[in-house]
Each structure stands twice: as structure tokens, then as C-alpha cells.
Design a protein around this nucleic acid. Structure first.
Lengths: 345, 345
DNA sequence: TGTTAGCACTCATCCGCTTCGAGTGCTAAC
DNA sequence: GTTAGCACTCGAAGCGGATGAGTGCTAACA
């Protein structure tokens, strides 16, 4: 893994970097001549060729056929991401663009998340995804049950950070609106300050102990609520951007990508799995979903009040502009964290 | 419009029907030989050719080039939809499939709508869309305001049919949770039995008259709520199905279709515009959105308690299997109406 | 010993050519 | 009114040579 770097002398690394840079831009196999001209190393194509031959043998480059140039392997992208790419800063224009489009006057979390996803997709021209802040990590401040019809109610949970989520739950038909109001107050009193995920273990026994008769009903509701709330919501934008890239000009390939994105299962999995890693890059077959194995996924986390509360990411072809994507994501992570920190008091 | 029919004798109509049927299946220009064989009219290709020549002159057929077959024009699809197609019944298997997948035990409206969209898309292999039942047509039963953070609250509206919707609204920072509870009860009392859309005109003045001091605050909230609630929600499924059809093998074309579907503006417009027409078919340029002018959109309404409360539809290439789409939509409209009528008491 | 010019070789792509065949439209005969 | 026959059109597919980007090897050079 980290051996990769030591296997290569500086010259090989610079050549590899030049090749990856070029391939990311053009999507066409890169020849020795191009590298010789582009990299200002003052080496002739012949020399470059020798080095490229070595790089191929080492598994960093691949040859579509004898007389084409070379294209980077996944191993090359991995090295590129870890050591080679110059971590680009955003231009002033880009930073300005983000500032302008992430409207800080918006006062609803969901709206901010949607804007973030939109900006992310617009700036990178790849598919973006943002995990809506997850309740499980926050403390409950209030639970409200609203009667909807015979046997069903809507449960609204508000957290200490002001994030809300709601779900329909089934209730015994015998409960009156007044009963629900009482139960709301009871549950709020009991859960206030606790994490929902902890509630099952720590709070339910107390309730059972304190109120004899209807304890089962109330506990059942809390379990229902906990179950509904632990489902992750993901905002996805720009799925169709993938059609701009020649590697997806094959309709079947585009289709399987888009279908996977539409269902969102894998994206959700990636985002929740990475929601405690500041930055994470999955390249090609590092994705365990077969339909995503010629994509790369880059994710970052975002915070509120110094604590990770969600993550977001970008999906594109393995030949994506990692440097730009990383720069945009880092910037956006900070912006979103700032906004949410203010918004969530 | 209805002249179209009278312009054509029965034989021409049958030939046209055979051509459209064939083209819908194959997406390839249809030649006289094929029609002669497929339609059991006992006519030679030469005769068919004469008729096809007439049909071309009348604007029902088009010729990609001299030596190809003919393809139906939009005018032909229109005639086909209005008069020609045999309104297929679903097979027992298909009806069975729908029954099995529209789980009537589900007790949440949103879930039923999502299932409906999924089934619609799976059965037709086109893109489906379902308008979530709109509050504006229903009567309010309860409005609940839940404090979320300084200055903002969540408003949850429950209607007489048990449909719910919620929105974040801004509130004066001075309001306490108790104030909100009082206001909730006040608003509920005032709006109960009224349509939200009527509330502005009929109820606001009463409120202003009755409670002097905080009337402005309350009325402002009601207006906020009314605004949020009147936004239509659409569930879209199967956008990537379009890539299965050769007319969208061009990446640019597929892209503009998918982008339009992703934003959903046009779909929402179509569904709301058609939400009082039992069935509506828009063929090609009958769509006023330029990106959708080689699609067709078929919509139907659905009811609860005998009253239209929403609509759903299917989007595909102009060469879509209208007969099947219409059959599926009609069946689904009935199923969904039944389910919702029970669900919404 | 590392670098480079030179050169033969490979192979996808392009272009022009031909062939093929599906389909038309017209005419003349039934 | 219908149909067989036939010349004609034109895209699609197949073929062959030219093109050129790119390689790998060798031999000479600093």
C-alpha cells in the first residue's frame, strides 16, 4: 500500500502524475510524446517510453492495445490521490459561487441540505449526495404525537440541535387525542436529553417500572419511533451528469449506474459507513457494489457544534478530477458545518 | 380533429393500425410487405403500398428516406389513441402482480403512493409519476405547531381524509411553547372543516375580528402554512428506463430527458394541470416543454370517497405502448382509489 | 550508465468503394 | 380495383488501403 510510493523514484512519480492529469482531462490514452511535451522535465519521448514501460510492468499503467498510449490503472489513481495530486485550492470565483448559492438566510435544515447537494453537483458536474443529519447522534428535546386517523398518528421528533423528523406510527384505536397529548408529554419528559438510540436500553425499563398499566403501549410506540427515525435520508442531485462522460456512452452501462443511483441503497450505505471518516475516497473496485465498480466515490463529513452529524459526497467516473472534487468537498464541508452550527443554535 | 377519422375509410384505418402496432413493437420503419403479412386482410404489398402512399400524403405516415418503410406521425398516434387501439385488458398475471405488490396492509399514504409509482414503472417499463394527494382539495381537521428552535416551528396539518403534510415556518422569537399550543388550538378550531385554500378569504377576517392583539401573528402563520401546503409533491420512479429505448440511445437526448425528469417541474405541472381530467394523453409536441417533445405522457386521476384527489401518469417515447399503458393506468387508478378510500376512512 | 535518435512494427481509425437488400413507385396486365 | 413485374433509391454492412499515433528495440552518444 504505502510501499507504492517507495517503489517509484521521483521521476517516475512525476511522469505518472502527468499521465493521470492528462487522462483525467481528455479520457484518451496518453502517449510518450504528450508526456514529454506536457511535463517540463526536458526528457525525450524515448526516455519517457522506457519509464512508461516500467510503470506498466509495476501495474500503474495499462495499454488498451499495442499502438495506443497508456491509461492509468486503479493503483495509479490510488497513488495519485494519496501522494501525487496537488491539492488544488478553489479559485476566488468558485468560492464566490458557493457563497452566493448557499443562502445562509434559509432557516430550514432540509432546504440547506438540498442547496448543498445542488451546488456540489453544479460545481463538479458529477453526481452529488448529501446525508440529511441523522437523529441517532443527537439528543431528543421533544416528541409530539398527532392524531391522524383511527389507529394511526404522526410522531414528530425534535432534537436539541433543532433537527426534526417525522413518521407515521400505528396506535391502539382506543386512544383519544387527549391520551395522545398526555403520552407525548410523558415521552418527551422521559426522553428529553437522551439519544433515541439509547432510549430503548436506558429509558424503557424506567417507564415500565413507573407506569404499570399502559407501559406496553407507550414502549411499543417508542420502539416504533426509534425504528422509523433510524432510517437515513439522502439527497441526490445530478445523476444525469454521468451521461456527459464518454465512459458512460454505452447505454447499458449508463443504465445500471442510474438505476443504482435511483434506488440509492448503495449511496446511503457509503454515506453512513463513512460518516465518521473525515475524508474517504473509494476508487473503482474498492466499491463493493458491482454496478459501481467503474466509478469513484469521494465523501467528507460535516459537523455542527464540533461534532460529526452527517456526510456528503460526489460520484463520478474513476477518471474524475479528484483534486477539484476534494477541494470542493472540503470547502463545502466547512461551509455547511458553519451554516448548520449557526442554524442549529 | 374528429375529421381525421372520417377522412379515412376502414381499410386505411386498419392498415394504419397495423403499422402503428408494428412500429410500437420494433421501433423500425414498417414496409408494405410486413403490413401485408401481419394484417390478415389478404392484400398484396402493392395494394398496401398505394394505401400507404395516400396515408403519407394525408400526413399520417412519414418516410425517413425513399427506400425505408414508413413510420407513424404524431397525427397517426393521435388517431390511434382516439380510435384505433384495441383497449387491452390486463392479463390475469398482470392483475395478480399489481394486487400482490400494492400491499393494502400499509397504513401510510406516502408509502402507498411510492408503491404505486414503483408498480407503475415496473409494469410498463417506462417512467412513472404519482402526485401525492393534495391538501388544497381537502378539509382541515387539525393544525399542530411544534416548537423547533428560536424563531421556527414545524406546522403539521391533518385533513379530514387523514392526509398529512408538514412544513417549517418562521415564528416570532417571543412565542413560548405554551403560546404555540394555544395558537395551534385556536387555528384548529377556526380552520376545522374548511379548505386551507379558502381559509385566507373566509377565516382570516373572522380571526382578525375576534382576537385583536396577536391577530397579525396568527394570520401570518396561516398564510405561511397555506403557502407551504399548496406545493405539490410528486413521486417519480424509473427515470432510467428511458435508456432501454433506441430513440434515446443518443446521450445528449437521454440527458435532457433525464435532467427534466430530475427537476420534476414539468411533470408536476402536467399532473396538476390534468388533475381534473379522468384520462389525458399528450403526444410529442403536444407537450409544451421542448425537452419533452419526443415523449408522450399519459395521465389518469385517482379518487378517494368519490372525489378526485390526485393524478398519476407514465412518460415514455412517443412510440409507447399506449394500449398497455392506458390499461395499466386505468387499473391502477381503480386500485389506488380503493386503497385510499379505505385508508382515509 | 543513462539518454536519445532512428527505425521497423502494430493497430485503431478513417475514407472510399462495392455489394446487398429492403423498400418504393410506376406501369401494364388481370 | 388489384396485383405482378421491374427499375430505381439509398442506408447498412463489408472490404482494403492509407494514415498516423504510438510502441519497443537497437545502436550511438555524452
Amino acid at each position: 500500500m504505502s510501499d507504492n510510493k517507495s517503489l517509484l523514484d521521483i521521476r517516475k512519480m512525476r511522469i505518472l502524475q502527468a499521465i493521470v492529469d492528462d487522462y483525467i482531462m481528455t479520457a484518451a490514452p496518453v502517449g510518450s510524446r504528450t508526456v514529454s511535451k506536457r511535463s517540463d522535465m526536458g526528457l525525450s519521448p524515448a526516455t519517457i517510453r522506457n519509464e512508461m514501460s516500467d510503470l506498466t510492468e509495476l501495474g500503474f499503467l495499462e495499454q488498451p492495445h499495442t499502438s495506443a498510449g497508456r491509461i492509468p490503472s486503479e493503483k495509479a489513481y490510488r497513488l495519485y490521490v494519496n501522494h501525487l495530486m496537488d491539492s488544488a485550492k478553489l479559485t476566488d470565483d468558485e468560492a464566490e459561487y458557493i457563497k452566493r448559492h448557499l443562502d445562509t438566510r434559509v432557516h430550514e435544515v432540509g432546504e440547506v441540505i438540498r442547496q448543498t447537494a445542488k451546488v456540489l453537483s453544479d460545481m463538479t458536474n458529477y453526481t452529488s449526495m448529501v446525508l440529511v443529519p441523522q437523529l441517532s447522534s443527537m439528543k431528543v428535546r421533544r416528541v409530539t404525537l398527532i392524531p391522524v386517523s383511527e389507529g394511526s398518528a404522526m410522531a414528530v421528533v425534535v432534537t436539541n440541535t433543532g433537527v426534526t423528523k417525522n413518521a407515521m406510527i400505528r396506535i391502539p384505536e382506543s386512544l383519544s387525542p387527549d391520551d395522545l397529548e398526555k403520552i407525548s408529554k410523558l415521552i418527551t419528559a422521559k426522553l428529553d436529553g437522551h439519544r433515541l438510540s439509547d432510549a430503548i436500553e436506558s429509558v424503557l425499563p424506567t417507564i415500565r417500572a413507573e407506569i404499570g398499566e399502559q407501559a406496553d403501549v407507550v414502549c411499543g410506540m417508542i420502539e416504533d419511533i426509534e425504528r422509523s427515525m433510524s432510517e437515513a435520508d439522502v439527497e441526490v442531485v445530478g445523476a444525469s451528469n454521468i451521461l456527459d462522460y464518454p465512459e458512460y456512452s454505452d447505454a447499458a452501462k449508463a443504465r445500471s449506474f442510474l438505476t443504482e443511483v435511483e434506488t440509492g441503497n448503495y449511496l446511503q450505505k457509503v454515506l453512513t459507513d463513512s460518516s465518521d471518516v473525515e475524508m474517504c475516497v473509494r476508487i473503482g473496485t474498492e466499491n463493493d457494489n458491482p454496478d459501481m465498480q467503474d466509478c469513484s466515490v469521494v465523501t467528507v463529513t460535516y459537523k455542527a457544534g464540533g461534532k460529526n452529524i452527517g456526510s456528503m459526497g460526489v460520484i463520478g467516473p474513476t477518471r474524475m478530477d479528484y483534486s477539484k472534487v476534494v477541494a470542493v468537498l472540503k470547502y463545502m464541508s466547512n461551509s455547511l458545518s458553519d451554516i448548520l452550527s449557526k442554524l442549529l443554535k
